[in-house]
Design a binder for these strands. Sequence first.
DNA 1: CCTATCCTACCTATCAGTTGGTAGGGTGAT
DNA 2: ATCACCCTACCAACTGATAGGTAGGATAGG
Lengths: 187, 187
Amino acid sequence: MSSNSREAILAAAKLTAQAHGYSGLNFRDLAAEVGIKAASIYHHFPSKADLGAAVARRYWEDSAAYLEALLAESKDPAACLRQYPGTFRKALESGNRMCLCSFMAAEYDDLPEPVKKEIRTFTDINVAWLSKVLVAVTALSLEESEPRARAIFAAITGAQLMARSRADVSLYDALIESYRAAGLLPA
Amino acid sequence: MSSNSREAILAAAKLTAQAHGYSGLNFRDLAAEVGIKAASIYHHFPSKADLGAAVARRYWEDSAAYLEALLAESKDPAACLRQYPGTFRKALESGNRMCLCSFMAAEYDDLPEPVKKEIRTFTDINVAWLSKVLVAVTALSLEESEPRARAIFAAITGAQLMARSRADVSLYDALIESYRAAGLLPA
DNA sequence: CCTATCCTACCTATCAGTTGGTAGGGTGAT
DNA sequence: ATCACCCTACCAACTGATAGGTAGGATAGG
């Protein structure tokens, strides 16, 4: 309950970073969105690198919680897997944004090390979840499922990237459908 | 032969943009690399937006020429298609860079309109080429081949993005192999 | 109860560095 | 003499970051 601003900063920074990347984050605009002054952000985050790492960390934490909840509620792994591309679709729907992880993967060379680490974790979480679900849904073994999980994750982020460059969510849907038709994703 | 600097600027800007994006381009560093002063760049390009558009245009022009040459020389479309992922691999080999188009697709919101246009053209060129080759190689009809071509292109850029975030070219190879194993790419 | 001390959460003011861009001048080849 | 090409010298805007201060709440000692 202590610091409401900290949460507001994280939320605003997440949205900005999804649209403009780490380099697009700046303290003045961020502070203005939250309703405080730029210098006050330093009270909550010692540096931009720390803020970026905190945003990325929160991002994969939320993602991990969502995916686990999905699996826990439904008891139908196939249905979960069918829903998975929808999580990336939401970002596109929300102002043509994209996955934080994908944007920062592009910016990788210019990222502070702590941010890089959180970005990698997001990928790991997603690949691990996909791999686990694939074992339950398909005939793939555990060794076969992980490369496939990576391929699915990469293909989905690529689809998001392409759809974004056309600002066209239906293109994303078409790409996912093509992945299913081609056999990359289970039909 | 007239302006050697113009070519040098384009070449240096391409490499920088592949590693740091459009926002990572700046006139001072660029000029230093070429061996002239920042203000002198304005003699060749009226603005950063113009430079960006010129770089992106040259990028798809080179790509188009390369792909057409590939097809003209070999007479074996299947071999061409097998070589296609290699063109994106080269960027990773060259200092963990990535496709200009992919990076700028991420930055899409912040791109000047002329740059956006060239970026879209790069995608169109690649999809058209892939679609053409797919018709020759697979049993797909012209209508079926275009969605498939788009899916392949998106998946390959996604693989590049993921491999970049691990600075691991072998991960790219593994992803391409998974695409083949899954049936997205012809084996 | 009171008051000294500390903490949280923010502020103003300012910094040095970097950005894209401009004005105007020099020089050498045609 | 013109013009392509490059220069020095700026500028305004913006960047992350720091210094130092203020208002108000919590807390502990007397």
